[in-house]
């Protein structure tokens, strides 16, 4: 599995060689554009990481979790996974850290551990993607993007608990 990425790169390079493309010149040109891309998304990422940092350090995330645990309990969602579910849309690294803490506290094969795994595997860093992609081109009116994306995240949350009950 760890070979997927190198294999993908090798296929691209071999294809380029077969088609007689100046491979290294292209690479340099593309890498240069990569820096421009980075320059374009950097401010957005700074703003988002800052907000997530505040949420965690202020204890606001714990407040929200406490407020939401009765709701989670009522729909059969494990309370231990609520912090991870909340952080998942904004921070990949942050939610991975919380996924690991669920593994440490409950074990990966516990109900909570399994639900956390399925949720981690079936959701993405929603708000991160939205701000980065729209921010990169300066589009501010994103219409119904956020609603559709949040609905998808909620679906993943409900489905992960239901499917673990059903299958495992």
């Amino acid at each position: 599995m760890e070979l997927i990425m190198p294999a993908f790169a090798a296929v691209i390079i071999i294809f380029g060689l077969v088609k007689r493309v100046p491979v290294f010149d292209c690479f340099i040109e593309g890498a240069k554009e990569g820096f421009l891309t980075l320059y374009r998304i950097a401010p957005t990422i700074l703003g988002l990481v800052f907000a997530v940092g505040l949420l965690r350090s202020s204890g606001a995330i714990d407040v929200i979790c406490t407020a939401l645990s009765p709701v989670a309990d009522a729909v059969g969602f494990p309370v231990e996974v609520v912090p991870m579910a909340l952080l998942r849309p904004v921070s990949g690294g942050g939610s991975t850290a919380l996924l690991i803490s669920v593994f440490e506290d409950c074990g990966p094969d516990s109900f909570a551990g399994r639900v956390a795994s399925v949720l981690a595997g079936s959701s993405e860093t929603t708000f991160f993607a939205i701000t980065m992609y729209f921010g990169s081109v300066g589009v501010r009116r994103i219409r119904h993007t956020a609603i559709a994306a949040v609905a998808a995240d909620l679906t993943a949350m409900i489905m992960s608990a239901a499917l673990v009950r059903l299958f495992l």
């Binding site: 691209i12 390079i13 294809f15 380029g16 292209c26 340099i28 040109e29 890498a31 990569g34």
Partner: peptide, 15 residues
């Protein structure tokens, strides 16, 4: 930057 470079090869070669 690495993948932008590789993607440029993919683009130019028709991949």
């Amino acid at each position: 930057c690495l993948w932008s470079g590789l993607m440029k090869i993919a683009e130019r070669s028709g991949f």
